[in-house]
């Protein structure tokens, strides 16, 4: 796999090693769905981790009990019911979740974890509105199984807004949103572009954003917005 280099660590591409030795995590008391087997190693620092009951149905956030702390990545493991226990990060925060095989990443992030920036527009991989960064790549969460993000670093538009305010500013200044439903998908994709290419040309911007549909037709103004963001980011913002 050809890893893309990035200078800024905060977005998406913290190295595997850094990930592993990152602050220890806490396993939620999700024994109701059979995760006791997870509490494999203990000790070290503590950190609050959100877990949710993952059976189909109303998602209930389980109050995390600080019991077991592991420093290592929880190994990908399968419960007796065929669910997966996955350990991943969203916007820098670590989560351990139990997911169904048929659960999309979109469902996990949007419905269970509350990242509302991830929109359903086509739900078949044809619009870019559900984009998230996974290890730096702009990926469609509606066409990604939740179980596949184990060990990965995810960034959503909410997180990017915190990390790259200059991008948000440029988008607002250029009025790149009308109804605004597709805009977070553009933000995610533009962030991926800017991380790979700090000075993109018009054509490079158009190509990079070519997978994002906007029914309001805001396309023309994304080009100056991304250029302005690139300039501001290079200026240290």
């Amino acid at each position: 796999m050809t890893e893309k280099k990035n200078k800024k660590k905060s977005l998406g591409e913290i190295s595997r090693r850094e990930f592993l030795i990152d602050a220890g995590i806490v396993l939620g008391s999700t024994a109701a769905v059979g995760t006791a087997a997870l509490a494999s190693s203990c000790g070290g620092k503590t950190e609050t981790v959100t877990s949710t009951v993952t059976k189909d149905g109303p998602s209930k956030t389980v109050t995390t009990t600080v019991t077991d702390v592991v420093e290592k990545l929880v190994p990908l493991s399968c419960t007796e019911d065929g669910q997966w226990v996955i350990d991943f990060k969203v916007n820098g925060k670590r989560f351990v979740e139990i997911v169904e095989p048929n659960e999309t990443l979109h469902h996990l992030l949007h419905e269970k974890l509350g990242f509302k920036s991830i929109k359903t527009f086509c739900s078949r991989g044809g619009c870019g509105s559900c984009s998230v960064l996974i290890d730096g790549r702009p990926i469609l969460s509606c066409m990604t199984f939740a179980s596949s993000v184990h060990g990965k670093e995810i960034w959503t538009a909410e997180g990017i807004a915190t990390e790259m305010p200059a991008l948000i500013d440029a988008y607002v200044d250029n009025e790149c949103m009308q109804c605004g439903y597709c805009t977070p998908g553009f933000i995610v994709t533009a962030a991926a572009l800017l991380k790979r290419n700090s000075d993109p040309t018009t054509d490079e911007i158009r190509e990079a954003l070519a997978g994002n549909l906007c029914r309001c037709g805001t396309y023309p103004v994304h080009i100056p917005a991304v250029k302005e963001a690139a300039k501001a980011l290079k200026g240290g913002r």
Partner: peptide, 18 residues
């Protein structure tokens, strides 16, 4: 400055589908 801009860009603007 567009008043609904920042929340729409950051994805914190909530829609019925959300």
């Amino acid at each position: 400055k567009r008043r609904d801009g920042p929340e729409k860009a950051a994805g914190t603007a909530t829609y019925a589908a959300d």
